[in-house]
Design a protein around this nucleic acid. Structure first.
Lengths: 186, 186
DNA sequence: CAGTATGTACAGAATATACTGCACGGACGG
DNA sequence: CCGTCCGTGCAGTATATTCTGTACATACTG
């Protein structure tokens, strides 16, 4: 069943996929990787790699690499389809879930190491009792900020899928609450 | 007064600046740009371009470009120092403010255009009453998500400088509140 | 077991990005 | 007015990243 369905994209799908690719590059994600993700996101069925390859006009091996990358990020899974030997791929369809997954992974890969480096820097400055007071102040404020911010962010991420709509409705109120609580506390 | 002070970096400063550079690249920001920013962030005084150049060992013109870029992001300002013809540069020192500024700019440059594209796509799908129901569902859910999310984020950003500490304290409570409100509403 | 389908690793080519060095222009200093 | 300082634009170079094509491994098919 090498029915390599030559899937061609509708104009809208194409528009979205291309834009998603650009978007990706601006956030440090490989264009092809982002495009593959967009394609899977729009596809109602799992898609085999060679079909992705022909649809996007990129080398088969490139698709392979991109899929591996996306699996690494935890938003693409390999699945099988009855009567087809080939691996098929699908992505998480729930947008909030995608966001959660990617954010957590990015935190793990990029923020956590930064926190570690900052902590080390501060530590080293505490040890060598030099006149680097200013540097230390700056680094500490940065460390504090990132710590609080990621903590907050993590809690938001931990909210159940779909809670977002609730947040949407509550919005204005909640933030105002935060603001006023702050005033009281300050 | 071409007192081009050959400033050399302390080990800690160097460590931070290098890491910040790497960090930058992972988020789609030029390494040198990030390094220049880190340098300014740690510096107690405004710094002239040639000093940045020699301290980081990058070409003068490269520094010039990077500074322009940082000014474009709104986190670096040109200032003058008495008795010195040269332009000096300083960055915002408040980390929360840096975060606010950069986030807003990134939203403006990257998220907003995406929202626009998504809206267009959805619109086009509504017009041409095709069988692209699935595509439309996906794109709509993405559009909804991004709309809500950026709205929420914007409100958070609008919180006064320093409110963050308050939020830090309130944290657990607030998020729990959000969660339970959701349950009630659902 | 031969033959074919499928997936992946990797070397080299192609491209994009970043950086340097210099040249030019304006402004200042005497 | 020179001579110098300073900033910026740009052409060419260097580097990093991405992509392709092929070669190889594995596993299924008959």
């Amino acid at each position: 069943m090498s029915d390599t369905t030559k899937t061609s994209l509708t104009p809208v799908a194409q528009k979205f996929i291309l834009h998603w690719g650009e978007m990706g590059t601006k956030w440090g994600i490989n264009r092809t990787v982002a495009q593959v993700h967009a394609l899977l996101f729009l596809s109602p069925h799992p898609v085999p790699a060679d079909e992705i390859s022909s649809t996007l006009s990129v080398a088969r091996s490139n698709v392979s690499t991109s899929l591996r990358e996306l699996q690494g990020w935890g938003i693409v899974r390999l699945v099988h389809v009855l009567g087809d030997r080939r691996d098929h791929f699908e992505t998480t369809k729930d947008v909030w879930e995608i966001f959660q997954t990617v954010s957590e992974e990015r935190k793990r890969r990029e923020i956590d190491p930064t926190l570690r480096v900052l902590a080390e820097c501060v530590q080293e400055l505490k040890a060598g009792a030099q006149g680097e007071t200013y540097t230390r102040e700056r680094l500490e404020s940065m460390l504090d900020f990132l710590t609080i911010m990621t903590g907050l962010f993590e809690e938001i991420l931990r909210m159940p899928v779909g809670a977002l709509k609730g947040v949407g409705k509550l919005r204005g109120k909640v933030i105002t609450l935060l603001g006023s609580e702050k005033k009281k506390a300050g």
